[in-house]
Amino acid sequence: MEKKIYEDYKYSMQDTARLYVGAKYTFRELLDEDEISFKFRLIMERYILPEADREDTLETHLYYLAPDSFLVKIYKQMKARVKVNVIEEKKPFFGGSRGRTAHVPEKRYVTKQLTVEELASVPPADKERQGYVIQELSVSKLALLGL
């Protein structure tokens, strides 16, 4: 059986204000990636990694983050935001339903930007039910300099 490596959502980008990191990186890959800001990698190694496993993905780490965790405070200091896809039901429009007999709600993925505090406040069971898919973590460059 051929082992396939999932490379989607393994990226890093920067603009003038923020650093964006794909959520499929494992912590080991993050620390080895030269394209990612040194300061970000240093914070990950010093503060986040002692409470995580090197083989965990950033996605898994953020998905199961406890709301009362010290790590949430660190992410808050970095002004971190998480891009998440969530399944949302689109309410049917009852006004112009010519020829239709049933109004079935349409489910679709919607992309949302959440703070880490907002993401951590949702219990994992609710995340599973709502179909959360974490795409990326973004942090403020200015906040990184302050840590």
Rank of each mutant, 00 (worst) to 15 (best):
K4E: 09
K4C: 00
I5F: 14
Y6H: 08
K10C: 07
K10V: 03
K10Q: 14
Y11F: 15
M13C: 05
D15A: 05
T16P: 00
A17N: 14
G22Q: 08
K24E: 15
Y25K: 09
R28V: 03
L30A: 06
L31D: 03
L31T: 04
D32Y: 03
D34R: 13
K39P: 00
Y47G: 04
P50I: 06
E51N: 10
A52N: 12
D53M: 10
R54S: 08
E55A: 12
D56L: 14
L58F: 02
L58V: 12
H61P: 00
L62E: 03
A66F: 06
D68S: 14
S69F: 06
S69G: 09
S69L: 09
M78R: 07
R81W: 06
R81A: 01
V82P: 04
V82N: 04
K83D: 08
V84C: 05
V84P: 06
N85W: 13
N85H: 11
V86Q: 15
E88V: 15
P92Y: 12
P92K: 13
F94L: 15
G96H: 12
G96V: 08
G96T: 07
R98T: 09
G99M: 10
R100G: 01
A102R: 15
A102P: 00
H103P: 03
P105I: 07
K107G: 02
K107L: 11
K107W: 05
R108E: 12
Y109C: 00
V110R: 13
V110G: 00
Q113S: 15
L114Y: 10
V116C: 01
V116A: 03
V116Y: 01
E117C: 01
L119C: 04
A120W: 05
P124W: 06
A125C: 02
A125T: 11
K127D: 07
E128M: 11
R129P: 00
R129S: 04
Q130L: 15
Q130P: 00
Q130G: 00
G131D: 08
G131C: 08
Y132R: 11
V133G: 03
E136F: 03
E136D: 13
S138P: 02
S140N: 05
S140A: 05
K141I: 13
L142P: 00
L142V: 06
A143E: 02
A143C: 01
L144M: 15
G146R: 12
L147N: 02
